[in-house]
Design a protein around this nucleic acid. Structure first.
Length: 657
DNA sequence: GCCGTTTTCGGCCCGACTGTTTTCAGTCG
């Protein structure tokens, strides 16, 4: 049996947390389980592997109790005290807590007094008047429960980031008209999560009343949920909930911070403030001793500065190590749109795109790109008018002509070749080796288990012709779950062969996701940030790939298409050479070793790590891989600083440790 | 359950709103 995924392991801890909250007792214990679940979902490697390598217990938030439970879960899929709690409380109660207005305490009472365990039973209890017997349950509250049950029944669920951003943009326009001087998305939307539940909108205004009033009465509002003097909550016709908070401009930064979340990040920052004798809220910073306000928080930077931290961008605010990194001065310099030199996955009207190669190229030039890979579908994807070898050859000639004509953009003749069900590629080697860039993707036959799917993708990579694995999990946001696949095994092979993985900017894919990007970073697999464009306008969708990449802590040097085109060609040629595949070098291309030296600072750190004793586990593994494959320019450079023969040094270090 | 500038026990973010009650518990973000 394949090892359980991090998501599956985390699910057990989430369930434990929810059941504990319902059972009652120390609420901090329940929260601790929630925290553990989050930490596990976001681990950079599989929990199974980290357990075996001893890195799990070093992870902040993972204590002895969790170690013990993880071992049980990996063995039997569950752990003892979860089973005990399941025996006490029916599963349906967890569903009930998800209804707005019902918390764990109310649900507990419902169960203890009336044995209510499902939404249907709750509805009955509300209609029969049973609920009125509970303390603090009046007629209004019962009606609120019934309305919420109605909303629950036809809840549309979460919206992909792209849709949520569009909705908030419309709302922002309304609020500005009503006098808001600043408007910003808040919550998970500002942190650029892939799927957005509630839409959070933040605004600054001298007088909040007209802004709140406009929010409640604007078009698209189905029902008002609640409102106050400077906040309001509505249900939109789309089924989504939208929440507004309005602050005075002098507290704008404090408000932004408080309502951008994540809850865990905000909580951690406030706990830190407490240690400084300070009190942080949306009203600014004050002293705990006498409540004197020391900073209203006009700018968000001031909130961080108050607790002696540099500004942390919203994408990182997940309480997954950003506070510690900020404290140590090691916040990542996240990759930005302006770092990208080209796009390596797009379609033209030759297959299922709507723009010609020329139109796509012009759009790329407008974005300031240096290169573009045209990667139409391959032949077996007939629904997308996929290209066969003959048509690909004709397209390559066309691209050469176009490149000469435009003069400002290098055009790579590529293909998004299908990974067939048996893991072979949908084009013959004769066609594959004449291409400049090959993206391999799974488009059909998703009904495989993780073992089969992983073997299929690995086989495709091992042909040696693949430069980048396209949308590695196949998810479609809100439509199709990712197919089961062991990403670690895929990354392991990708690193060994020198294959990149894609962070896809299709806003309904965003695949890899943030955790996947972080995992790629950990496995030192280069990531390509591209768009899978099907029209010229789509090239701007890089923002969605960037969202995943930035949330995954990726920096410029982790991303392949921040490099000059010569390095991309080198990346491909190097692998083809190593794999013993015939390399045809286009006469105009000079393969020069232009690989940038690792930045001196990074190399210095690495040299220090190599001098440390004992060597870190991760570094030992890296040395092993280096000795096997001879690859790892960064490590190589660091080793050369220790002695002239890097291989000998690596060998000695491994032997000595 | 986890953690440590109050460090192996005691504390764990904070404010606003709702519905109810008449001073506050529960919920939410």
């Amino acid at each position: 049996m394949a090892a359980l995924s991090n998501q599956e392991v985390a699910r057990a801890f989430s369930e434990m947390a929810e059941l504990l909250a319902i059972r009652g007792g120390d609420p901090h214990r329940a929260r601790a389980f929630h925290r553990v679940a989050r930490v596990i979902v976001n681990l950079p490697e599989s929990v199974d592997r980290m357990l075996r390598y001893g890195t799990l217990q070093k992870t902040p938030g993972i204590g002895e109790g969790t170690m013990h439970r993880v071992k049980q879960i990996l063995r039997r899929g569950t752990f003892d005290d979860l089973e005990a709690l399941r025996a006490q409380l029916p599963a349906g109660l967890r569903e009930l807590v998800k209804l707005k207005g019902l918390g764990p305490r109310t649900v507990r009472q419902l169960y203890q007094r009336f044995r209510v365990t499902t939404v249907e039973q709750l509805e009955q209890a509300a209609r029969s008047g049973l609920l009125a017997q509970l303390p603090r349950f009046g007629v209004d509250r019962i009606h609120a429960v019934l309305r919420e049950i109605e909303a629950f029944k036809n809840r549309f669920g979460k919206a992909p980031l792209v849709e949520a951003l569009r909705t908030v943009e419309t709302i922002a326009g309304e609020l500005r008209e009503a006098g808001a001087v600043e408007v910003s998305p808040g919550g998970s939307l500002r942190r650029h999560k892939a799927m957005i539940g509630d839409l959070d909108v933040l605004a600054a205004a001298d007088d909040p009343r007209p802004v709140v009033e406009r929010f409640r009465s604007m078009g698209g509002v189905a029902r008002e949920h609640s409102s106050g003097s400077a906040e309001a909550s509505v249900r939109l016709e789309s089924g989504q909930q939208a929440d507004l908070w309005v602050f005075p401009l002098e507290n704008w930064g404090a408000g932004l911070h408080a309502f951008s979340g994540s809850k865990e990040h905000v909580r951690a920052l406030r706990a830190r403030a407490r240690r400084f004798g300070l009190h942080v809220s949306e009203h600014g910073v004050s002293t705990r001793a006498d409540g004197r306000r020391v900073n209203p928080g006009r700018l968000e930077e001031e909130i961080f500065a108050a607790v002696n931290l540099p500004f942390i961008v919203p994408e990182l605010r997940e309480s997954l190590g950003e506070m510690e990194a900020a404290e140590a001065g090691r916040l990542p310099e996240l990759v930005r749109a302006e770092d990208l030199r080209g796009d390596l996955h797009l379609h033209t009207s030759a297959s299922d795109g709507s723009g010609t190669a020329r139109e796509m190229a012009r759009a790329a030039i407008e974005l300031g790109y240096e290169y573009l890979a045209v990667t139409d579908h391959s032949q077996s994807l007939t629904v997308a008018n996929g290209l066969d070898e003959r048509r690909l050859a004709a397209q390559r000639d066309e691209l050469r002509r176009l490149e000469a004509e435009l003069g400002r953009l290098q055009l790579l003749a590529g293909c998004e070749v299908d990974v067939l069900a048996d893991g072979t590629l949908d084009l013959e080697p004769s066609a594959l080796r004449r291409l400049d860039w090959v993206v391999a993707s799974v488009h059909e036959h998703f009904d495989m288990d993780a073992e089969e799917m992983t073997a299929r993708v690995v086989r495709a990579l091992e042909t040696g012709y693949v430069d980048c694995l396209g949308h590695p999990t196949g998810r479609r946001l809100g439509r199709r779950d990712p197919y089961p696949i062991d990403l670690e095994r895929v990354f392991d092979v990708a690193r060994r062969l020198g294959v990149a993985v894609e962070a896809n900017g299709d806003p309904y894919r965003m695949d890899l996701d943030d955790a996947g990007c972080r995992m790629a970073r950990e496995w030192r697999v280069p990531v390509v940030i591209d768009t899978d464009s099907h029209s010229p306008a789509h090239l701007r969708r890089r923002e969605f790939a960037l969202a995943s990449a930035r949330r995954g802590w990726l920096e410029k040097h982790h991303v392949l298409n921040t490099r000059p085109v010569a390095e991309l060609r080198d990346f491909r040629a190097g692998r083809l050479r190593r794999e013993g595949l015939v390399v045809t070098v286009p006469s105009r291309t000079v393969l020069v070793e232009t690989r940038e030296e690792a930045p001196a600072a990074v190399r210095g750190e690495l040299v220090d790590a190599l001098r440390a004793s004992p060597l870190a586990d991760e570094l030992r593994e890296r040395l092993r891989v280096y000795l096997e494959s001879g690859e790892d320019a960064e490590l190589d450079a660091a080793l050369r600083e220790l002695a002239s023969n890097p291989v000998q040094v690596a060998f000695n270090l491994l032997m000595a440790s």
